[in-house]
Design a protein around this nucleic acid. Structure first.
Lengths: 203, 203
DNA sequence: CAAATATACTGATCACTGTTCAGTAAATGA
DNA sequence: TCATTTACTGAACAGTGATCAGTATATTTG
């Protein structure tokens, strides 16, 4: 049965090849411009072949979507050592902002784009995102315990903070801040805003 | 020269006809599914005709984009009578949230979608959005004057509040809240979040 | 070993998209 | 009356995601 095993490995390899190429093209030119044909061209297979490994275009990009979350988790993971909960929260905020600005395409896929997750998938695998949200929730709960944030339901508080951070990043990515009366574009102003936000929240 | 006038009026009428049809189809089925051909079908003209009145698809949807801002302005405009600045701010927040949830397609076009505003247009006409932002900025300045919000640059403060509200609405529209550990979906939870946010900010 | 079957892949095609352009028919101006 | 402008269109271009009958190779079975 070794042959069968090898074949299965080969099949997975080809799947990975597709994802690798798709990721490369995606980071170069974004989701919309990365066509099935361009991926096929890149890996030197027929477009039809890709549909033997993925049901639809979205399924390929769901993998990249997951990669993005793994990336964000990696960024978050070694903040646990910060003892002060509020300091940890500040650090998470900074990192989230930096992640969004440095990986706008990943961020887009993860949080802005019309979800590439039709059907059941949504329940079964969205869980990857839970890790990142988990860090936030834990930190928020710590802050609440030490009364560093105004009392409230931890989930509501975490969602509130996330909503703020997401709003900041996504307004920036989609260039909605350029029209404001004052010029608040640029990373400095975004950081100023985040400091203002967190300091205002601090009890 | 009356004939020429009539002709110009007719031309504007046809332009309006296109926009009207585009709006109808857009609100029925969203941006992506509203094709030039479907608009042409609806108004019983050839697809090519549409390009005599609009340079590109985005130009049509820029009009709808403006309609959206006029709608939001109309919602905001009669909040000026609320005397207490902070109460006014709360009211603006509520209205913004309600607008986003009740008009997700408009909201999408206005604040989420990859901007349908290539080139110069961005400088010349984005100003429509300034009205709505103006209400927010005025209210924020009032709040700062009466020390109802933590001191800070008015533009940064306004942007911070807007970012929060936008984050809340857009995470909801793009269904990113469903994956959270607790079920924070639903208008109630969003309102709870907004109350928590604004109360936390209040000095 | 030979025949039947399973695997991996592809070219062609479908139905769609935004956009362009040569051509037409009618209204207008000289 | 004839030239010109105006308003419009059919057909096409180049691209998209997706499908499917067909093919060539490899494996399993009698």
């Amino acid at each position: 049965m070794a042959i069968k095993d090898r074949k299965e490995r080969d099949k997975l390899d080809r799947r990975k090849l597709i994802i690798k190429s798709a990721t490369k093209l995606f980071l170069e030119q974004g989701y919309e411009k990365t066509s099935i044909r361009s991926i096929a061209d890149d890996i030197e297979y027929s477009p039809a072949t890709i549909y033997l490994y993925f049901k639809e275009k979205d399924e390929i990009f769901y993998e990249i979507h997951e990669q993005g979350f793994r990336l964000l988790n990696k960024v978050f993971i070694d903040q646990g050592h910060i003892a002060d909960p509020f300091e940890r929260l500040v650090s998470l905020g900074r990192l989230y902002l930096a992640f969004g600005l440095e990986n706008p395409d990943y961020y887009d896929l993860m949080f802005i784009m019309r979800a590439p997750l039709t059907e059941i998938k949504c329940n079964s695998k969205w869980i990857v995102g839970d890790d990142s949200y988990g860090y936030l929730l834990d930190t928020v709960q710590d802050c609440l315990k030490h009364q560093l944030l105004p009392a409230g339901d931890p989930d509501i508080v975490a969602m509130t903070i996330w909503a703020y951070a997401h709003g900041l990043v996504s307004l920036n990515i989609r260039e909605r801040l350029q029209s404001l009366s004052a010029d608040v574009t640029g990373k400095d102003h975004l950081m100023q805003s985040m400091e203002y936000f967190l300091n205002s929240m601090k009890v």
